[in-house]
Design a protein around this nucleic acid. Sequence first.
DNA 1: AAGACCTTCAACCGCATTCTC
DNA 2: AGAGAATGCGGTTGAAGGTCT
Length: 593
Amino acid sequence: MLTTLTTHTKSSKPSEVFTNGAIAGLLTKMSNTTSETTNEKMSRQRKSSPSVEEAISGGNSCGGGPLKKGPWTSAEDALLVDYVSKHGEGNWNAVQKHSGLSRCGKSCRLRWANHLRPDLKKGSFTPEEERTIIELHAKMGNKWARMAAELPGRTDNEIKNYWNTRIKRLQRAGLPIYPPEICVQAMNESQQSQDMGPCRTGEKRRPDSSQENDFDINEPVFENIALNQGLLSCPSTVLDISFSSIIDEAVNSSHTLGFMIPATHTHTYLQVMDTPFCCSIGSSSNTLPSFDQYEDDSYGKLGQTFWSSSPCEADLSMNNTSTVGVLFGSHAPINGNSCSSEPFSVARKSELPSLQYSSSHGGSWEKLSSSLPSIESVDTLIQTPLTEQTQSGCPSERSSGLLEAIVYESESLKNSKNDSYPRISETSIVADDVVESSHETIHGAKWAACGDPISPLSHSAASVFFDYTPISGSSSDDPHSAETMPGCKVDPEAINRVSPESSRKETASLQSEYLRPDVLLDSYWSGHGVRFDKDRSIVAGMGQLLGDDLICEYRQVDALTSESNLSFGPASSSPAWDHTPAAYRLSDHWVPF
DNA sequence: AAGACCTTCAACCGCATTCTC
DNA sequence: AGAGAATGCGGTTGAAGGTCT
């Protein structure tokens, strides 16, 4: 939305030259322009604009009196434009003297720079500009002026406002701010920068000199990344990103500087991107591929999982803590405790992807719920207090979210009636054993390192993946198929280290299962005694509780996928989704009731 | 219909940096 | 070299319009 005042300059062609002494003409022009604005803007203009005479006379005092503040009037704009046309930019403090404006120099400069400059581009940001902003922000952080320098016709204020509103939106939605590929790109560039020269980090640089280099990363942003570069050995590892971990880390990093991911809903970052971002790890950010590029390749298979709305997200569903922390500039890698990433649970919970029922799933409420991180900071909309139960018995306390509360209640009710479902402790024993045995050895497999009980180690739910996975090409007979899923690689070594005592089969199962967020969720749900064939009301209730945000997000994703011919469902084309979250997740594409 | 709440954006403020004398 | 002015930058605020209840 353009404000009234900005529309004044909009009418001014970039090449338009303000002739000397053209105030009257300008005023006429502006008057005409104003008449072209919307009624609201006119109304606002009238409210905020004194008469021209008033403005020229200084409004409230000229010559030594207090300088005027507040919205600029068209008359003031005309005066300023006239002044600049005569004297050029700069020497802003002289404006008051020479033009009669009762504005301080800073205000004049700001007004000129943000609204009156003839070369300003008006209107909302184009998708290309938005993408550029995101990329630049990934590189620079909150260096609005430098970002504006990369976007001709755009002002730092404009970019800043755009970014802030975007951030708010993302935070509300619990979405990551940066598309993963941009994170990777920025990180790679940062790494290159560090490789190229010493002391880039911590080296105080003059602001102007930094403009010479697009890759001049905002130091604090990637400082943490640099600490973990040893973990980012090769581009392939970039693909080995655990979605949960990445979110964990992302949430952990939500308190960091600019390079943060407030939360989760990775699949829905598409919504805010306007331009569908795809994972272009290793490729130029300027040539971000479209979704359909992945449709036929292995990525597309991953993309078929609802969770993985993009190859990036598929990548994110992989487990690789090394990259995770690096990618998102989290301090989590520093503290080495991904379990501290409680905030992520929101995301997990709210994301709740294609749940595919598996009756074979046992689970532990305690373990699983505890494995679900809490939302402490990210999505205030879905926060819920911890429950005693969820906090107990977990090395890293995890808070309970709304969903968990619901599920817990569901389980309580269910347990009161029926105790036929597997008890958690039975399966959690295995998980604990495995996890404990791996605690000291795992560095890369953070889920194990944190004893994350949500990991597939906690049960043998391979059947979920193999029996229910809609992923084409991933043979249900091949427990290792996940390994072969492009972008879904989990470091086998890490896995093996995680569970040295475990059988290969179990390891394979773990590998594949852990790659499946939906499986994880399934295990989560089923572990809580939620059977989707019987507890639809519960799930539906959850969908309602999850609220419109999810619905909207799914709609957006749906729209995007429709546009890009990308299907998230197992059926390659499933345009008619039921957009209610619960129904969506339980849609026939996924869970045939 | 009205009030509450949310979103957006122009403008301000304070601080840092650069420039000028 | 140092002081003061000028400029630049980023964070924050408040008003206005829009949306929701």
